[in-house]
Each structure stands twice: as structure tokens, then as C-alpha cells.
Design a protein around this nucleic acid. Structure first.
Lengths: 252, 252
DNA sequence: TTGACATAAGTGGTATGACCACTGTATGGC
DNA sequence: GCCATACAGTGGTCATACCACTTATGTCAA
């Protein structure tokens, strides 16, 4: 992936060991010789065929598996996997996790993606998309008292909106930050679970967002969504203040 | 990275070979024993210390290098590298490249990120950020006639806006799609280079966006930006139509 | 005949030891 | 003092052997 096409014509032995394997794999994938689901030759055969040693071939295999392009199963063989977003998710999670307050900052990415997706959803969503969002809304109402399940339902609802936008790029990015988003969701729920009137608010806010999509009004939908985020932020801040205040006093 | 924290307490030998290496590496990174720039023990020493064979350790090393966490230099050793976005970029480019029309769809992600970032920029941008954007604007005006340099200047301008938003998550995502964005930029410039009044439009549109940020008016800034995108889309469509019409006729 | 079990072949997983190629340093002669 | 060679340490590669898992095949007993 990193290197360019310079060596595409060269199946020759000028390459440095593992590069030969990567080159072979890339080419085979691009010209259709290998498709997701295909089974590769065994390590012994392939290493012979590419004239590299088995350890070298295994290094390359392991790296490809790490990147999600191969699924290696003990005793069965190595199978080609389509590009898998989970790798991207892991990598992003790990990269961003280094910084403090990332759970707050990832909220900005969430707002960005959802606000654009909801606009698209107003134009592009089909009946199935709307039904999916509605279903998640029901699920959300059923799990109001459980921070864990509630957080997941919340995430599922918003994911359905993004998917309704029918933009592969937006969905991919959203999935890429999904791990951090889920954490953020449950963390927020745990903070705000005791707030006065939170149940009614959650239901109303999400329903209004949903109805705006059904009405196919992009500006209103985005506005509702932004409002939802702003209020959520406000609630969260108050809850944190309350929590700190409680810590300060004796908790009789 | 993929697995969770269950085995964090287990330095024991319950792990499957390569996992031991990953576990060690992850732990050492998280508790600060390893920092970017550090040199790892030699393969022979480390394999002994982790009680795995050298080939297994090398497989893990190769995978980590592939992911950008290690820089392995022949004859010198293996050095820890900070997370490198370029891996993410490559992966995203490769994953999304499979689908047709991705260059159009990635525009949705771009709009999403920039529209949110410009809102943040209105609140958070410092003088240095504004100066940076201004500088890119000048550069943009100087390269109006060169599709290549012009495309890059265009990209640089918008990147400066995103950076002015001071959100690590947004910047990271933007960089992740940067490769596709750059292609998109130059492709658009090549299409619209001959359009009547395009030079004046480009300057005016970008300047207005810039001035909105300076005025610190989020709603206006986002509106200007969306308008810019919409008009760009319109221009591009017209140009494509014109190009097709020209092909239909004899090009005397 | 049919079921369950044992066996064998093929696969990935690991280990060992040796050797090559590259790098930096130390040691020798000049 | 300086340069060139030799050496030690490193990653890079290889060949071989063996272990563990999966599957299919075949065999034996009910």
C-alpha cells in the first residue's frame, strides 16, 4: 500500500524478501486473481512458489492479517478478507487514546459527521432507513434505566441516522470512531442517569430528530440535532458539577 | 490493540506466541516504559526475555512496523515510532478506493469535517491560526493558473481552517482522507480551469470564508462554506456537461 | 447398513541453529 | 594524527524439524 507502482512489472527477484510477498498479494488483489473469500496456497507451497523462506512468508502473512487483509485459521489455511474497518477503529482508538480529554474531543467529530449525514438522510433515506431509525428509537425507549444497554441503544439510533445518509465515506469514518463513541455514550449515560426529567428529555429529543428526518427538512433536522448535542453537553456539565459537590461534602 | 485488557495482568506464558509480544509492547507503551524514539532490545535478547522464538518475535515486529509503530533499521535496531497517520491514510485510501464514485462521496466527509471545524475555529482560533489561513489565501491567489499548485494551495487553505478548529479528532480524520481530498482538489481544478470568471470566484469565495472566521461568526462562516461547496459542485457539473458536449462535436 | 471411533494427511504454529548483510566502533598500521 | 582494516552487534534470511489443529478417510463394531 505504501509503495507505489514502480515495481509492478517486476515479478523478478530484485525485491527484498517480504516485499515480494506484499507485491504478489497486491497485484493478485488488483487484477482480480484473488477475491475476498478465496483460500491462498499453503505457506509451504507459496513460499516455494515465491522463492522465499517460510518464516519470511509468515512475517508477511502476519502483517497482512494484522491489517485485516488475511484471515489465518490454524489447520485450515489463509483466506482473503475484504478491507475491515475494525483495523481502522483499533488504530484510531490507539492513536487518539494517547491524548487526554479525547473522549470530549471525539464528540466534535461525531457532531460533524452526524450533522452532515442527517442532511443527506433527509434527501436520500428510503422507507427501510426510516423504519430502521424508528426501530432503534423504540429500543432506546425500552432501555432508559440501564446505562449499559441504554448507551448502546443511543449509539445504535445515531448510527442508523448516519447509515440513512447513504454516504460510504461518512459511514466509514463514523465506524472508525465507533469504539470511542460507545465509551462516550455509556460514560454520559452513567453521569446523567440520575438527573431530574432525563428520561422524558431523551425520548423527546430523539423523537424530534427522527420526525425532522421523516419530514425531510434538512435545516430543521440539523438544528434539532445540534440542540440535542448542546443540551446533552449542558446536562453532562451540571452532573459533573453535582458529582464534585457531593464529593466535597460528607456523603451521609 | 484488538484484544482488550483481560490479559493485562498476565505476563505469564498463557498467551499464544505473538500475542505475548503485542501484549508486552502495548503495556510498555501505556505505562511509559517505552516512548517514541526509544530503541528496543535486540531481537535475540527480547525473544529470550519474552520466551518466544526469534521468528515469532520477528513476525510481531514486522506487523508492528507495518502498522507504523516500529521503525526497523538494518544493522541498528528497532525504534519506537509514534502513531503515524499515513498508515491510516493508506488504509482508508485503499479501503474506499474499491468503490466507484468515491471521489464524489469523500466530498461529503470533507463538508462534514470542515463545517464543524469552521464553527470551532470561530471560537478557538488564535492570531497565529488566522495568520496561517491568511497566508494560505495569498498562496491560493498566486497559483490560480496552475491546476497542480492551485489544487494544493486550495487544499492547504482548507486544512488550515480545520487546524484552526483545534480539535485533534477532526484534524486526524481530515488527514486520514487527505490523499483522496488532494486528488479531488486537482481533479476539480482541471475541470474548471477554463470556466468564465472562475479566477475571481475562487478568490472571492475563499476570502469571504476567511473574513467570516475573522469576524468570529459561526453561522455565517458555515453558511459561506456550504455555499462555496455548492457553487463548486455546480461549476463542476457544468464543466463536465460542456466537456461532453465538446466531445460530441468536431473540435475544429 | 450404519454409526462412532481411530488414523493419516495437510495445514498453520513454534523452535533451533546457522549463515549473510549492514552498521558502528575499535584497533592496528601508516 | 589519520586512515583502513577487523570485529562485534544488529537485523535479514534460510533450512529443518517438530507440535497442534482440522478434516477426510477408513475401519471396526453394533
Amino acid at each position: 500500500m505504501a509503495t507505489d507502482m514502480e515495481e509492478l512489472q517486476a515479478d523478478n527477484d530484485a525485491l527484498l524478501g517480504a516485499e515480494k510477498v506484499f507485491s504478489f498479494f497486491r497485484k493478485a488483489l488488483l487484477d482480480g486473481r484473488l477475491k475476498p473469500g478465496d483460500r491462498l496456497l499453503s505457506e509451504r507451497e507459496l513460499s516455494l512458489s515465491l522463492s522465499v523462506s517460510r518464516p519470511v512468508l509468515r512475517e508477511a502473512f502476519r502483517a497482512l492479517a494484522m491489517l485485516g487483509f488475511l484471515d489465518i485459521r490454524h489447520g485450515k489455511g489463509a483466506y482473503v478478507k475484504g478491507p475491515d474497518i475494525s483495523v481502522l477503529t483499533d488504530f484510531l482508538t490507539f492513536s487518539l487514546a494517547q491524548q487526554p480529554d479525547i473522549l470530549d474531543d471525539v464528540m466534535q467529530a461525531r457532531i460533524a459527521i452526524e450533522c452532515q449525514a442527517i442532511r443527506l438522510a433527509c434527501e436520500r433515506a428510503g422507507d427501510a432507513d426510516l423504519a430502521a431509525i424508528g426501530g432503534r428509537l423504540t429500543r432506546l425507549m425500552d432501555t432508559l434505566d440501564d446505562p449499559e444497554a441504554g448507551g448502546e441503544a443511543d449509539y445504535a439510533f445515531h448510527l442508523a441516522i448516519v447509515e440513512a445518509g447513504r454516504s460510504a465515506a461518512l459511514v466509514t469514518l463514523y465506524q472508525a470512531i465507533s469504539e470511542l463513541l460507545k465509551r462516550s455514550h455509556t460514560a454520559r449515560r452513567q453521569l446523567t442517569v440520575g438527573v431530574q426529567g432525563i428520561r422524558d428529555y431523551l425520548v423527546d429529543a430523539h423523537r424530534e430528530v427522527f420526525l425532522s428526518i421523516v419530514a425531510r427538512d434538512p435545516d430543521a433536522a440539523e438544528a434539532r440535532l445540534r440542540e440535542h448535542f448542546a443540551i446533552g453537553d449542558e446536562l453532562r456539565r451540571k452532573s459533573m458539577l453535582a458529582a464534585y459537590a457531593k464529593i466535597g461534602r460528607p456523603d451521609s
